[in-house]
Design a protein around this nucleic acid. Sequence first.
DNA 1: CCAGAAAACCGCACTCAGTGCAGATTGGCA
DNA 2: TGCCAATCTGCACTGAGTGCGGTTTTCTGG
Lengths: 207, 207
Amino acid sequence: MRTVSLRDRKRTRTRQALVDAATDLFESRGYDQTTIAEIAAAAEIGTRTFFSYFASKEDLLFPEADVRVQAGLDAIAARGPEEGPAEVLLRALRQIGEDSDDLSGRLAALRLRLIRTVPAVRGRGLQLQQDAQRQIVRHLAAAFPDQLDEVGAGALTGAFVGAVTGALQVLLGDSDDPIEPAAVQQALEVAVAVALTPWLRHPDHQQ
Amino acid sequence: MRTVSLRDRKRTRTRQALVDAATDLFESRGYDQTTIAEIAAAAEIGTRTFFSYFASKEDLLFPEADVRVQAGLDAIAARGPEEGPAEVLLRALRQIGEDSDDLSGRLAALRLRLIRTVPAVRGRGLQLQQDAQRQIVRHLAAAFPDQLDEVGAGALTGAFVGAVTGALQVLLGDSDDPIEPAAVQQALEVAVAVALTPWLRHPDHQQ
DNA sequence: CCAGAAAACCGCACTCAGTGCAGATTGGCA
DNA sequence: TGCCAATCTGCACTGAGTGCGGTTTTCTGG
């Protein structure tokens, strides 16, 4: 038994229609050249109704943000008895990376491009990232009360996330479409090595 | 001989008047309740003219961003012969922290509060931080061509900046005015220890 | 099957940020 | 002094986002 009331199904469908319509329009016409009115019209709802689905135009690019954050928090909660904070963060990252097609997929590719192109989108993305980070810090500190205080958890999480995004930012830098998974993997390993070296117990980590 | 043409002096004065007026109005009325028209009127210029001084309302809170970034880049350029990348980053941070009253000062305090309060301001701040970070990465990679490639420099800088901001974010968390410099110093040391341990040659660093 | 309540839809009018344009002002400089 | 360029400013406009109020649709209990 899921959330299957007609109301909710309809709402989910409309929401998806909005994302799809926005994806199409952003790709063909460009982000700034697309108005919310056009997106709403393409999804066959009134302009006013749009704002009961998304609070802003930018949010169309990050539709399942909360789901991904939750996956990360779950990964922290499911820590093994022998894991330290660094291992947990690493596993959480892999978890998020797996169940979301974050580098393939039409919307994902569009998002990456618009993040590099449109300031408003970048700002919103960074904002969401920081919010997620804050939650991770709280859960991490709570999960390792003897090894980390809040400030330490903030520093560790910040270093980890900062290293990964810093490396990815350089890697995805200016080129457009051709993203090689191998290179991404390599960049992540560099970032992890830089950020987590003093934290990992086993210096070798496969995959 | 500086930039002392009457034109430039006048322009600088008007710019400062705008920042001052905005500071006053933001403090008394609140950020969202203050319109650009009001700020412009308080600084005795036309509403339209405002946009030839600042591109947006948020930018009023970050008036000397470029100056600070430049100070950081200079600090990198002035590296000593025995310094590694981590030491340079550390020195750059201290440099920036010194010549900008970033934790005292009316505008600085207001900025911190609004960053926590107003999403648009936070987004803009993160954006500026990321831009600065990108420049630092470039300069750092150029300064240490044998020790760092671009991706490594991105990871290192990201880890460093991420750790510091992550720790500060937790520290400045929810409280409002009372910021104790000693606690800040402590948080920075924690962050540096977390992020730079494997990079620093001398594990002890005074001050 | 049928109220009535709740939630969603949606038009209307509004505020405000930000832009393009064109004309008036003013400072720089020969 | 007089010309050029930068600056200032009002006007008109677009587009995001909000509050309000009335209508439609869905849910729930009898």
